[in-house]
């Protein structure tokens, strides 16, 4: 009996994501090009925010390296071009970022707090300048052309990466490794005393999160068609996912999703309505959000819900 109820629950819980996936998969049939591109952009930011929070959320290691891993994917796309079937390029880009993150993790994951933040951000600048130097002195160019794919194809690839990421992030969060990551964030030494191989777990998760960032970079490059190091390793792509994830709330998987979706739309809205003041308004919104929403939007809603149900409960008793 009990077993049947839990399988039923699991089925019900599985249905919602599947329905959403189906809706999004069919959306190119009805959406206009503009909406489709906006949705693709939103997916890209959700991928960056969710994969960032997959590692940084539980462990508290604030990484500012998303732009580096994303950029590695962008350059993989540009270098390989038509050399391989596109799905293979996506995987190659992901793997390139995975390996890079693994190496960087080995060097830096011993650093805590601000040192780790600085190093990861330095990585973005380092790669930007290295690629710039390489292109100028070795290949003799600064920009590259990426073979374009249609808007719909780009959309489907982004959707596929997002679906894989969400499945991975969900399973990780609810596995014992998810709890282990959380305990590392709350007391690294104590975590080691319980038998967790702290270094290995941190490096693997950091690399796994970079895989999805790199894959997203590969796909996005085909929509931009022309790239140079400053576009590929744009520091904004390091800050935005972090802010989106914090804005949405790190406690739940859907926090970063909601945060990224709202922010992408907000950015789009502000750019079109207030092209000259958009950065200013955007910045102020962020400051307010971070100052007054310590647990993010999801945390705020949860708090309000708790208060409301307590009041209702209290009223029923009184």
């Amino acid at each position: 009996m009990n077993g049947r109820i839990t399988t039923l629950n699991r089925l019900q819980r599985g249905i919602v994501p599947l329905v959403l996936l189906a809706v999004f998969a069919l959306s190119p049939l009805v959406l206009k090009q503009y909406a489709l591109i906006l949705l693709t952009n939103t997916f890209m930011y959700i991928i960056l925010a969710v994969s960032w929070s997959m590692f940084s959320g539980p462990t508290g290691y604030i990484s500012l390296a998303p732009a580096a891993f994303f950029g590695a994917g962008v350059y993989t796309s540009a270098v390989l071009g038509f050399a391989l079937p596109f799905p293979l390029i996506v995987i190659t880009g992901g793997l390139a970022s995975f390996c890079m993150a693994f190496l960087v993790g080995a060097l830096t994951l011993r650093l805590r707090g601000i040192y780790f933040v600085m190093f990861t951000f330095g990585l973005v600048e380092l790669l930007l300048n290295f690629v710039l130097w390489w292109e100028v002195t070795v290949t003799g160019t600064t920009g590259r052309v990426v073979p374009p794919l249609g808007n719909t194809t780009v959309f489907y690839f982004m959707l596929a990466i997002l679906a894989c990421l969400l499945l991975t992030a969900f399973r990780l969060k609810h596995s014992k490794y998810g709890f282990a990551l959380q305990s590392i964030g709350q007391g690294e030494e104590a975590a080691a005393h319980t038998g967790i191989h702290v270094t290995a777990l941190k490096m693997n998760t950091f690399a796994l999160s970079a895989f999805f960032m790199g894959a997203a970079g590969v796909v996005m490059a085909t929509r931009w068609t022309y790239i140079d190091p400053r576009i590929a390793f744009n520091p904004t792509l390091s800050f935005l996912p972090v802010l989106m994830a914090i804005f949405g709330g790190l406690g739940q998987l859907y926090g970063p999703i909601i945060g990224a979706a709202i922010f992408t739309y907000l950015e789009e809205f502000l750019i079109t309505r207030f092209p000259y003041h958009y950065m200013l308004i955007f910045g102020i919104t962020m400051v307010i959000a971070i100052r007054y929403l310590p647990d993010g939007l999801v945390g705020l809603v949860q708090k309000a819900w708790k208060q409301w149900s307590r009041r209702k409960h209290g009223a029923a008793q009184g």
Binding site: K176, F179, A180, Q182, S183, Q186, G187, A190, A191, I196
Partner: peptide, 16 residues
């Protein structure tokens, strides 16, 4: 301890 985790989660981590 892991301060923001429940008592049960703290204990379960011991069996990692």
């Amino acid at each position: 301890l892991f301060p923001e985790m429940s008592v049960r989660e703290n204990l379960e981590m011991g069996a990692y």
